[in-house]
Design a protein around this nucleic acid. Sequence first.
DNA 1: TCTAAGTCGTACGTAGGTGTACGAGATAGC
DNA 2: GCTATCTCGTACACCTACGTACGACTTAGA
Lengths: 198, 198
Amino acid sequence: MAPTEARPQPRRRADAERSIARIVAAARSSLSRDPDATVDEIALAAGVGRMTVYGHFRTRPELVEAALAEALRVGEETLSAVDLTGDPREALARLLASSWSLVSESSALLAAAEKVLPEGRVRELHGSAADRVEALLGRGQADGVFRTDLPMSWLVNVIQHVLHGAAEEVRAGRLAEHEVARVVTRTVLSMLTDRPAH
Amino acid sequence: MAPTEARPQPRRRADAERSIARIVAAARSSLSRDPDATVDEIALAAGVGRMTVYGHFRTRPELVEAALAEALRVGEETLSAVDLTGDPREALARLLASSWSLVSESSALLAAAEKVLPEGRVRELHGSAADRVEALLGRGQADGVFRTDLPMSWLVNVIQHVLHGAAEEVRAGRLAEHEVARVVTRTVLSMLTDRPAH
DNA sequence: TCTAAGTCGTACGTAGGTGTACGAGATAGC
DNA sequence: GCTATCTCGTACACCTACGTACGACTTAGA
């Protein structure tokens, strides 16, 4: 139950605090690019020695978890700043525009975490992120603007995958950064609002 | 240039032929579940000793490539049996229905391959698979039933990701096998045929 | 300025995976 | 039934990554 960044008792020095922040940031970006990134690589990216990393994180899984927790925390923060009231379609568009890069980053981090963290631990941390989307979709359904002929869990999941796909296209150079919001929004809204005649 | 299953000169014995087939099949299913599957695990799954594997494939990458090539070959075979004439929407539905499991399997295999095969080698092998979808989408656009406001490469890619998402849902037990075709078809067709007012 | 805290290099032990060497035994195919 | 081919266990060398031990140096903070 204790948060990942719990301090047992001893207060940490300011430089240690800074090191930890740099290490976690490096872990996020390294693991997002390569879920198998080495502790050594992460240390290098953070500009610290490998030993310093082990001074703050006992094992690699612990570091991965910290990186994931931080990413989710930032994500949570960003998402909670988005105005989700008004027309569900526009609310969703705002949500997607401001979070696509975050979500796609997390998806690689999530993969890294699932490899090394005990079963279920990831979902435990991830919990509320998907809930927010689900709540918005639910409202849109109640308002009659979002489809109801497909399972909710599917809709949430497929949005995640579309975002992941967008990240991949950007990485491959087939889609420009400034195009993403438009493309993703149109794609997702089409998926959600279409009412097939069949 | 020689195909993966090239026989240099010496004709192989029937039991060797059988072993190879079992190894490749095991590699496909093992690597689809876990892109980091060990040679040992694959051998075990194939019901042969690890040494037998090395008797036919010099290195792990070579085995991965063989598995991928085989999966693509089977995929090619299945896809080419699908009737792609007539209404592009119905043609696409047929294509999705008969290939979703194949595509989603390949996507994990592709990940395995990209880790160990030289840059570009994967795309070289994969080539024609995506082309077929692209051709169909192009025809649908020409017929005026598929949208043209988003990049073609994006459409192809996003279909791939939707299929991947479907595979994940099935694996997680949130979507029943017999539901997949319906769900995927509706989702993809909505994406392709919707004409946003914005 | 003094000291506890933090940094980080070198060196080491361990674990797991890859690929090679050897060789005994099984079997397909003529 | 003979022989080349195939199977596959054991053993080994090698590599990479993890995590620990030690210790010298640096620096924050009172």
